[in-house]
């Protein structure tokens, strides 16, 4: 199973665990697209999106608890991901039958996890680490 890269570590157990779980779920979807798993994208992807939304809620609660000053800005960032999540679900609904949708889904998932979720979270890594110390 793939591990999170060092540059993506938040050094916050709850958030790193969530990111790791998301990565594992996405790895599984990619394996389905590549024909290495008998599951269906159409089943796995909504579960991943559900988990991502739970992660956003957990994260916003944590940021509020530690008094992160830009919590509203980060919550707005989560809201702005709605459109990307809709696109991911649309592609997943087609991916089992349409290879082009599968390839687009793989690309969208990589960016969704690394660029939209984890990299954006790194903005408050230092703050959360300081507060939890």
């Amino acid at each position: 199973m793939a591990e999170l890269s060092k540059s993506f570590e938040m050094e916050c157990e709850i958030l790193d665990r969530d990111h790791q779980e998301l990565m594992q779920q996405i790895d599984k979807i990619v394996a389905v697209i590549d024909g290495q798993d008998g599951e269906r994208c159409a089943n796995l992807t909504p579960e991943m999106i559900k988990f991502a939304k739970q992660h956003f809620s957990r994260e916003e609660a944590l940021l509020t608890k530690v008094g992160y000053p830009d919590v509203e800005k980060h919550a707005a960032h989560h809201q702005n991901l709605d459109h990307k999540m809709e696109t991911i679900l649309e592609l997943a609904a087609m991916a089992d039958a349409n290879p082009l949708a599968g390839e687009k889904l793989k690309s969208a998932l990589k960016f969704f996890l690394a660029d939209d979720i984890i990299d954006a979270d790194l903005d408050f890594k230092a703050f959360v680490k300081d507060q939890e110390a």
């Binding site: 690309s107 990589k110 960016f111 690394a114 660029d115 990299d119 790194l122 903005d123």
Partner: peptide
């Protein structure tokens, strides 16, 4: 500026 360019993308 922050950004990620995954392998192959």
């Amino acid at each position: 500026i922050s950004m990620v360019v995954p392998g192959g993308e």
